[in-house]
Design a protein around this nucleic acid. Structure first.
Lengths: 303, 303
DNA sequence: TGGCGTGATAAGTATTTCTTATGATGAACC
DNA sequence: GGTTCATCATAAGAAATACTTATCACGCCA
């Protein structure tokens, strides 16, 4: 036989009451049931825990020591229950969130502020990389959720749309007064794009009705920031998501214009494993992220 | 339902193996049995511990935290078993031993030396008082054993004889060359005795064939040491147990003589509750005490 | 699409644990 | 000194629990 928590609970009651009948009452069982479990416990241990006197039940020396430890254990076990109850509703512990590079710099500060304000004691890990890798890491359980451009169309993943964001044209400041190009004239221009793998590259190309582009410059490992700086140097033009405008165009000699309808845009959403037990919390979080995105974009409009 | 250690063990195995089948093997149960217990555990907690992927079983955030604590608990529980095993054979913890005043000063130093030498980490509490009170305290579980003169004849107590000790006559040094009195001549002398309640008083009286004595001096709260000093002052004579001779007659102007046969004597023994779970250890201890007594008495003879 | 690996579910069985009834023992009380 | 009371142990049958084997469901992979 093995030690059981039930035996510990009965033992603790008996140690406290010093009386089989009353201890059994306290445990809501019959007195023989308690007797049997105590005997079982003593047999398992190979030692007597109580000295049964005619009129009193006393702990032995060993029983005293045993009681101290058992109380510790029972306390720890009860804490487990509390812990579970606490973590059932609100998100606790670690949240590993992946974000694509064309969103991360603009949205993350807001997200992290909101999340850590609402969920005290939440540890946030951020992973910034391409969608394909995020999906991999999601499948492997290395991150809990990711913020990407939809659709991802992975059957194992849940997708939740957060908001749409338009793409804007960034061109040298000198071009400020030129007319807004349409997608066809855009194709004629020297369009600077991120390296392959970035979804934003594909989205931009698709807007221009291009399947692929032979880049004249290799921009491996570069960022929207780099692109904008290059535009400022008069090398060409580029597209950036509108959320990036305030950050990226502040310190560059560039001008920004919106396209005429139909404007290019993409849907930003959150994804997570369908099997994730965090699903409920992730839905809550998606609301927070949506609000964060709205805040950022409204700041842009007014700023 | 309640949390059980069994569930914790299964959970730990599953957390370790990340695979229901292999974890079940490790627990020597079937896979469904493990599945059920894990589900039960999760339902009890109201939280998911594992995320069941198609090809892998992963701990959730909460599961990770849970695993840490569960491992702690299981370790504590296993330690309980070790603790029991360790304390089964040798005596550990606290030993509360009572001794009557006419033995304590002469035997205790030796006993304590032997006991604490043999049982490392044994905490010895000594209670020195009259037999009647020792028996009371034994019954109440306030001491574990007592060293007294036998018989005590309490049905609830085990008696173990340790050794016999003779009584010797202590008389003023001036009487050194007088003949050894017998019990009848002793009755004529001015016999100094301990106050009522001391068994040694009764034993001495019984040797003289007296049922009681009207003491001419009230010696309440006194000791053999006091008696001997009084004898040295020429007030009367007294009897002391032979074990007390070296200590008590060293610094007094008294002479000591043995009686002729039949010499007065008493049996010193150990007593403890029949229900005491320490019985086995107490038997061992009684051997140690017996040897201690022999050592003390042999030192007396040669010294 | 069919086989494979894996976990969940189902049904029946074994084991454990509980309850009620009763026995044994020592203490208290005439 | 028996009688009664209190208390814990034991016994036997009932209830609850845990386990086993067999089977299903699902996703993955070829």
């Amino acid at each position: 036989m093995n030690l059981t928590l039930k035996q510990f609970r009965y033992f603790e009651a008996l140690a406290r009451h010093g009386h089989f009948g009353r201890a059994a009452d306290a445990c809501s069982i019959s007195q023989p049931a308690l007797s049997m479990q105590i005997r079982e416990l003593e047999e398992t241990l190979g030692t007597e825990l109580f000295e049964r006197g005619a009129r009193q039940v006393r702990l032995t020396n060993f029983g005293e020591e045993f009681a101290l430890r058992v109380r510790d254990i029972l306390r720890s076990v009860d804490e487990l229950g509390d812990l579970a109850r606490a973590s059932r509703d609100r998100l606790v512990g670690r949240l590993r969130i992946g974000v694509i590079p064309t969103i991360a710099p603009y949205l993350l500060p807001e997200i992290i502020t909101s999340l850590s304000g609402l969920h005290d004691g939440l540890e946030i890990h951020v992973r910034e990389t391409l969608t394909s890798r995020l999906v991999e890491e999601l499948a492997e359980g290395r991150i809990d959720t990711a913020i990407v451009a939809l659709p991802v169309s992975e059957p194992a993943l849940t997708e939740v749309a957060l908001f749409n964001e338009k793409f804007v044209l960034v061109r040298p400041d000198a071009d400020r007064d030129k007319p807004v190009p349409d997608r066809d004239t855009l194709r004629e221009m020297r369009l600077l794009l991120l390296e392959e793998g970035h979804c934003f590259r594909d989205q931009a190309l698709s807007f221009c009705n291009l399947r692929s582009a032979r880049p004249r410059e290799l921009l491996d490992g570069s960022s929207l920031s780099t692109l904008v700086q290059m535009v400022g140097s008069g090398i060409g033009v580029t597209l950036i998501p509108e959320m990036a405008v305030p950050v990226e165009t502040r310190s560059a000699a560039v001008s920004v214009v919106h396209f005429k309808d139909p404007q290019p845009a993409r849907t930003i959403g959150m994804i997570w494993r369908k099997s994730s037990p965090l699903a409920a919390q992730l839905h809550q979080i998606s609301d927070i992220v949506r609000r964060a995105g709205e805040d950022v974009r409204s700041r842009e409009e007014t700023g």
